[in-house]
Nucleic acid binder design. Structure first.
Lengths: 247, 247
DNA sequence: AGCGCCAATATGTGATCACAAATAGCTGGT
DNA sequence: ACCAGCTATTTGTGATCACATATTGGCGCT
């Protein structure tokens, strides 16, 4: 599989620190499932690939460890943690309770502009689905939810939820790609309707259903994926750091 | 107030890396509310205090940033984030939904040994309450909950919940100390009874009530605390890194 | 040919240095 | 006495180096 173009992380006049640029790039690649689960990431390898020194990569990886996006093994090496069925179920359960609550609490802050933005993202999702563009599909999907939860200023929930996205991301992509199941109903449309009607309970139900729908067919995929994981680390090194930043 | 003895972080034959030792020490001090909210932490200051170089401190702080235990200000300085009533309510709401779900999912893994350990912690809490020992009280309180949620191996919930504890910790201590309200009922006892009876719903109710009870009287405290925060950073520098590791 | 052992390499951790930006302290003027 | 402006210091970020450990590749032995 081609992982797309890998530019350098060092952008000319980015006001952010190098560490922040590296971090957001890695976060994106993990969330979009561009990094093979089980593959171990090395500081020097990523640094060379992103054309930065090892310091920004070290700090970015440390932050990803804290977010449970990557796992610090006992031999001090870092990798995308392997998935088990139990862990996956826990992650989905956590997503459901957190996102349902976040959605409810975001309701009072949702403006027309936010609804409009969410509609645009929903349209992008539909287009991506037709085009089989999984990068855009997954990215816009998360953005749709983030747009809602982020309506409340200084959201406490969003960072927690993003941690969960980082953990399910690597498997979501594989599950979606290896199955041609689509959304039976458009849960996002239901959510938007609930938002306009200010119907809290309908919103909760739509969000919960959206999360559940996305993973109903993952079980079998996960088994196969899990079987491959021990051997995955031995696979040839692959470039994982780069790729375009914007959705 | 005396913050206790501040030894060095560098323990003779600790198999952990220095960064891990520093991190756990800082986490503990934050969770127990030993660090003044608003006070900005410096890498070199903490490094000197803990008698390590700046590298382990840098990495530990970076991890705490990811856990939202400390905040990276726009001037790149790090501090305990100030609290608002909205944020506090969000944190408690997140605790309730996450911990109730975590408790329910932990139920099948709870053994007699775990219940016994929780009983011991509950006894320690009671003793600490009588002795007005807030360090032990808060620490054992968190340990009581962690003992339950940690019953499920490789818990997905515990890291998320710990992030919330780190965020409420600094204020919990101040709220408790400035109010002499105690638990009206022993929610921990209710939780233990529910565990023995394998009564999931009763467990949920006990956990939720326990979290709510602990903060019912915080509102007014928070207001006063908030008013002090802008000036708090200007207060004389205080040693914050050390203190005994074990509860 | 298969397998265990050893050297060569790669890697994470920690320390130190350089630099730019931010903060604090001081001086001089009004 | 108070304040503006400048300098000195502090601080975070990034780079580089040293070192112990883990991994890998090859070599020799059976």
């Amino acid at each position: 599989m081609d992982y797309g173009d890998f530019g350098e992380a060092r952008i000319a006049d980015d006001p952010r620190t190098l560490q922040q640029q590296v971090l957001s790039r890695l976060r994106r690649n993990i969330m979009l499932g561009r990094i093979e689960p089980g593959q171990s990431l090395t500081i020097r390898g990523l640094a060379e690939e992103l054309d930065v020194s090892s310091m920004p990569v070290r700090e970015a990886l440390r932050q990803l460890v804290a977010e449970r996006a990557v796992e610090l093994q006992d031999n001090r090496r870092v990798r995308i943690p392997p998935m088990t069925i139990e862990r996956f179920n826990d992650l989905i359960a956590a997503r459901i309770v957190l996102e349902a609550e976040a959605a409810e609490r975001a309701m009072p802050y949702v403006t027309e502009a936010i609804i409009a933005e969410m509609e645009e993202l929903d349209a992008a999702i539909t287009r991506a689905e037709a085009a089989r563009d999984y990068d855009v599909w997954i990215g816009a999907n998360f953005a749709f939810h983030a747009c809602l939860y982020g309506a409340v200023p200084q959201s406490t929930f969003l960072p927690l939820i993003e941690s969960l996205w980082l953990q399910v991301g690597p498997f979501l992509r594989r599950a979606i790609m290896s199955s041609d199941a689509h959304y039976a109903v458009d849960r996002h449309h239901e959510a938007l309707t609930a938002l306009r009607a200010r119907d809290t309970m309908a919103l909760r139900i739509a969000i919960e259903a959206d999360i559940r729908d996305g993973i109903s067919h993952i079980g079998s995929t996960l088994i196969r994926s899990e079987a491959r994981q021990t051997g995955a680390a031995a696979a040839g090194k692959r470039r994982v750091g780069g790729a375009a930043e914007n959705a």
